[in-house]
């Protein structure tokens, strides 16, 4: 476990520079988008004079590095500032919205895992059969289907025609966990198809590779039952693959959530960041970017920690 501890320490030290670089890049990208928020802030019936006043009032006329520096200084003091447009505290916005997105992402990940892993195993152990072909084709379809489209189809079937699930909205998991999961079901299903598809394909090919390895043949030759070979040796060896793929999918799900959240009117961070980026609401975009960077780094670290427990060679090599 010594290796694991060192890995955590080293990653922790990387966190600060990565956060600074990431927020700098995001800030620069938003800054490079033409126009500034002053015209939006001045309103539908603005005058040119008013736009200039607002520019000075909010400091939009300051150089890029001064604006970023001011943001960073405050952020280092745990002050993420307020939305330019609605004056809401950025930290409040994130705290209100992140749980909705996390619920969707984890729910989709779990749905993806409980469908994708068995399907992958089934396909690998029945390699070349019709079942394998059906599963593989389905997985290709799952990767290809855009989840916003699937989202709309699911709403029209399960919310408008049959009225089994709500068409839109979300309930806070802290207020009513059962309702929260109920509301999150359709969007989570829409999000999960990509996870299912990717996991199925990865599990299948990883398992096929392991099952064709020399030591598996040796085990079989020794007379071990095929079931035992599969469960004790095959799956154990693809666990790292599953974890890594799941970790990557977790990160990708945040970007898919941007669209699915808007189809289902889920007040999560996905809809927050797209709305804020379009309006050039610097403080909100920066705040969300910061939180997402931390989340992604934390999940990657977690995946690596688990991997190194499963396979000590990993810890030794990082």
């Amino acid at each position: 476990m010594h290796g694991v501890g060192r890995m955590v320490m080293r990653r922790g030290a990387q966190l600060i520079p990565v956060m600074i670089i990431a927020t700098f890049v995001v800030f620069a990208l938003v800054f490079l988008m033409p126009g500034d928020p002053a015209a939006t802030l001045a309103g539908d019936f603005a005058t040119e004079e008013r736009i200039m006043e607002i520019r000075a009032l909010y400091g939009f006329d300051q150089p890029f590095i001064v604006q970023y520096g001011r943001w960073l200084w405050n952020a280092l003091h745990f002050d993420l500032g307020q939305s330019l447009f609605s004056n809401e505290e950025v930290s409040t916005l994130i705290l209100m919205r992140l749980p909705h997105t996390l619920l969707l992402v984890f729910y989709a990940l779990i749905l993806g895992a409980i469908t994708g892993i068995p399907l992958g195993i089934l396909a690998a152990t029945r390699q070349g059969t019709r079942l394998d072909k059906a599963i593989t084709s389905l997985a290709s379809l799952g990767v290809a289907v855009p989840n916003f489209w699937l989202g709309i189809i699911l709403v029209s079937a399960f919310a408008l025609d049959w009225r089994i699930f709500p068409a839109t909205g979300a309930v806070s998991i802290f207020e009513d966990p059962i309702q929260a999961i109920y509301y999150a079901t359709l969007p989570a299903v829409a999000l999960s198809t990509n996870v299912t598809a990717v996991l199925t394909r990865q599990v299948r090919s990883a398992l096929l590779e392991v099952l064709s390895a020399q030591y598996i043949r040796t085990l079989r030759a020794k007379g071990l039952r095929p079931q035992a070979v599969l469960w004790r040796h095959g799956l154990r060896n693809i666990a790292a693959t599953i974890l890594t793929v799941a970790g990557l999918q977790f990160n990708l799900l945040f970007s898919s959530a941007v669209i699915v959240e808007s189809v289902y009117a889920v007040p999560g961070v996905g809809s927050l960041i797209s709305y804020s980026a379009l309006n050039k609401d610097f403080p909100v975009v920066q705040g969300v970017a910061l939180v997402l960077v931390v989340l992604v780094i934390a999940v990657n670290l977690l995946v690596d920690v688990f991997n190194s427990i499963l396979d000590p060679r990993v810890a030794a090599s990082t």
Binding site: V155, A159, A167
Partner: peptide
């Protein structure tokens, strides 16, 4: 007042009775 940025989604809240 529910704020729903996407117009089709906003319209669906009425069709679905929400």
């Amino acid at each position: 007042y529910r704020i729903i940025n996407e117009l089709n989604t906003a319209a669906r809240t009425v069709t679905s009775g929400q």
